[in-house]
Design a protein around this nucleic acid. Sequence first.
DNA 1: TTACTTGCAAATGATTTGCACGTAT
DNA 2: ATACGTGCAAATCATTTGCAAGTAA
Lengths: 153, 153
Amino acid sequence: MGSFENLEYNSLLLSFKDLLKNNNLKFTKQREVVLKTLYEKDGHFTPEDLHNLLKSIYSGLNIGIATVYRTLNLLEESHMATSLSFGVAGKKFELANKPHHDHMICKNCGKIIEFQNEKIEQLQLDIAKKNNFKITSHLMQLRGLCATCNTNN
Amino acid sequence: MGSFENLEYNSLLLSFKDLLKNNNLKFTKQREVVLKTLYEKDGHFTPEDLHNLLKSIYSGLNIGIATVYRTLNLLEESHMATSLSFGVAGKKFELANKPHHDHMICKNCGKIIEFQNEKIEQLQLDIAKKNNFKITSHLMQLRGLCATCNTNN
DNA sequence: TTACTTGCAAATGATTTGCACGTAT
DNA sequence: ATACGTGCAAATCATTTGCAAGTAA
């Protein structure tokens, strides 16, 4: 149960291979390109986005969307990826190789801005403690308009 | 575009009727019992939860789940209700008649604990300002184990 | 009377799953 | 050789929508 923060691709790949081995899962080309593309493109993708991207980058590899879902779920369960929920509109996944951060999401253009705030994190822990609640994860999203969309409206 | 904080049922009902009138919508028994039950039960409900509840409380009224969805969406768009997203597992709705608050959600028993923290709200505004981001809403959820579940595991 | 509403069932859209074939170990 | 993995298509699940009949104003 290690942390994947600040790992470069080769280390992530080794972690992934370990994870697979420890669970009697196999290292396949499909699983590899999902990890690799999430790392190289460094963004927030829906399974469909990523599937389209993979089909265009690896046109020789016939990868199905079910496999993309399966791999993203595997990465998320193993804490190598995290997801942002958009309700009915689905989820966006990102690799968990960066330090913990939260998100501002533009309702107009969909832009996602990452931020990180130590004071808020500490206040959350204080609140949890006061309620005898043991935090395992948290979710903080600010929704609204990014600088560009706010100006152009 | 008023606030619905701290309103008692009669005031909420008046606000709802105004809202309907202003949009050429009609005041129906179905819409009334959705609002009334959200108020009286004062909890967090999935559309399905609420539908079951309504069928048992108002057994004479034949209410369909589509109407429950339609009414909850109407209440949410009008800011008389808010929802918590549970990804693929759907949403839970609550009436917006209480001051703004966030939620701790127990992953084990599903219990939802409400909390409110002024300092965090202010820090969020500061962060947004620094990024020229205009917040229209925010989402903060702490996930983990409530006191009971943490003790019994 | 004139819209707007409703329940129903069918449609939708994201995600999951069964299965026969393919492949990493 | 023996699992496990894959693509495909069908299934699932929450939610939305078209429609004919009902009802508020």
